[in-house]
Design a protein around this nucleic acid. Sequence first.
RNA 1: GGGGCGCUAGCUCAACUGGUAGAGCAGCGGACUCUUAAUCCGCGGGUUGGGGGUUCGAGUCCUCCGCGCCUCACCA
Length: 523
Amino acid sequence: MDLGAVTDQELIRRKKLDELRERGIDPYPARAERTHTAKQAKAAFERGELGPEDSVALVGRMMTRRIMGKASFAHIEDGSGRIQIYLRRDILGDETYNWFFKKMLDIGDIIGVKGPIFRTRTGEITCEVHEITLLAKTLHPLPDKWHGLTDVETRYRHRYVDLMVNPEVREIFIKRAKLVRALREYLDKEGFLEVETPILQPIYGGAAARPFTTYHNELDQTLYLRISFELYLKRLIVGGYERVYEIGRDFRNEGVSFKHNPEFTQLEFYEAYTDYHGVMRRAEELITYAVEQVNGGLQLTYQGHEIDFTPPWPRIPLRDIIHDRTGIDILQYRDPDALRQAIRKIGGNPNPEAGWGKLVDSLLSSYVEETLIQPTFLVDYPVDISPLAKRSPDNPDIAERFEGFVGGMEICNAFSELNDPLDQLDRFLEQRRALEAGDEEAHPIDEDFILALRFGMPPTGGFGMGIDRLTMVVTDKPSIREVILFPHLRTKGMPSHLPELLALKEGKPIPQSKEEESAENPD
RNA sequence: GGGGCGCUAGCUCAACUGGUAGAGCAGCGGACUCUUAAUCCGCGGGUUGGGGGUUCGAGUCCUCCGCGCCUCACCA
């Protein structure tokens, strides 16, 4: 669907602009008068604070209109909601009512009205309009007042229209903001310092992902968009802050899916003098606090599943859950080829390049992840896919790491942070070998990070969580794109409507739309 | 990247095995002073995502391309 095309309806509205200006009316004035929001006006009236002699000034977008000859009703909508307005010719006069309101205004126009509040016979609180002004003229018609806008592609590409006509979509992002605020509240209350670390990084790291690459002209330097905050936040722990967190954007140059967007919002916190068990307890507290604040309780429905966030959440060793779901005991197959053989035996198709840890991880994502509906921690991960996590004292091949799952999705990842600089060096060297062997998601060596560890980092627990995914759960949305205001979509091949727009500007007939590459996206 | 599904008026959707592209809302003209998916009468509006092909005839069949959704692969 192509919302950008210019139509005959728009030309009609375009002509109204000229007519308004000819009569000395500015269709885009700079100022508006307002005494109440729609919600405030209704509340004040219900409290009896507004009598028939009191006038309010309201603003908003006209969403519906019912003209019945010499009287009309309409709804205007502002950021607080809708309110009905009532217009009469014998109050407004012939020119204002018949010409201005009925002929010049359209659904979608942003207007201001003044007048007293009353209740109609059917009980709706309504503003009786004594003055009406145009605040911004709409050229493009609004989508269907009843069905709204449903085409997902159009909704994401032109989110403003989606927000305008689909109030439940506005609600999603209000909830998202509440969620982020609650996470901050919890961490601030617990003495965590909110910090900001570089998005443009000369060396990326902290996650297994391919980065976006960019370039600084003046410095003649290649830079990467961060794939995590981890290595910078741990430097701050070395520096002496004991509790730090950051909420911000990560960028991973990977495929997109219902749970992956190329840029996504991450929360990471690091806490000195705790380990992954301590982080698990804190994760429970943090997430339950946030869910409670947004949702008003710890039970919610996600895609038909009743989910209960009441702690404590089960802690299940990764080895056990994989054994339970697949019959494979990963510790019985320490050799990658042996594990591959076992995976084939249960009908899987293992990656021939993958090492032991990656095979274990693919078992997790293929057979376990989608079954973890209730909040669950899986603990103790392979060291070779956890290059920044501390080894278990009981088993040097296992890292003190956990991931949290809910609604069949991984939402967080945490570990006892590796603070042994020489072990860290080994892990980086191992990553470099993988990188050189063609693993595009392996880390480069960050020598300055090693230097930081050489100065000594206290025992530390670290945590990372995808805020988009948690938002999906609390808003009951099946796709990450529903909880990102402007999700990434391909723009190549989108048509340009400049010729039509120029005709519209001149008030001339609209030429036929032709497929043309957008000028901003040569390629 | 593979496979499947989709793209029809500004919006929401119809159109059987190929046979004149329709409806509701929105818009335009008219009636109507408490309506709320207002109602009633009338009218305009389409390169059926784009190109090519088969056919007397294509929204419908074939093919290439674009975009999206789902799915598999990939992916901390």
